[in-house]
């Protein structure tokens, strides 16, 4: 089975890219495909705790994260970075050092970026 990585790099509040990337991950998982997520750049805002966006600001995609395990999506990776405060992030992220982060992309047969 092909392993797929969905790489989220767009702000969840700037465009639909983040939402549509998550949608693809959920559909892949629904079809019992092996899929992991990684998050970088402006998409890291997705992981911040205590979000309460209005309808104008966009959907609260953070709420989807707790449901990932029900789709058997077990891995959500970020690159360790001094600028990120771990205690402000969703607890189930897996933090990778720079070397692991770069090596991660070659562990998948398919990588899609949103």
């Amino acid at each position: 089975m092909k392993r797929t990585l969905i790489h989220l790099n767009s702000s969840p509040y700037d465009s639909l890219a983040c939402k549509e990337g998550l949608d693809l991950a959920l559909v892949l998982a629904t079809f019992e495909q092996a899929v992991d997520l990684c998050v970088s750049g402006a998409a890291l805002a997705l992981l911040t705790l205590e979000q309460n966006p209005t309808a104008e600001q966009g959907k609260n995609l953070h709420k989807l994260l707790d449901g990932l395990e029900f789709y058997d999506i077990e891995n959500l990776f970020i690159e360790a970075n001094a600028a990120i405060q771990p205690d402000t992030l969703w607890q189930s992220v897996q933090s990778l050092d720079s070397h692991q982060w770069q090596a991660m992309f070659s562990h998948y047969q398919q990588v899609f970026r949103f």
Binding site: K2, T4, D23, L24, V27, L28, F31, Q33, Q110, F112, R113
Partner: peptide
């Protein structure tokens, strides 16, 4: 078509190429 069609295509071709 739904995203399920994309999943089918992923599984029945050698490579999928994203243009973004």
């Amino acid at each position: 078509e739904g995203l399920g069609t994309l999943v089918d295509m992923m599984n029945s071709t050698h490579k999928i190429i994203q243009f973004r």
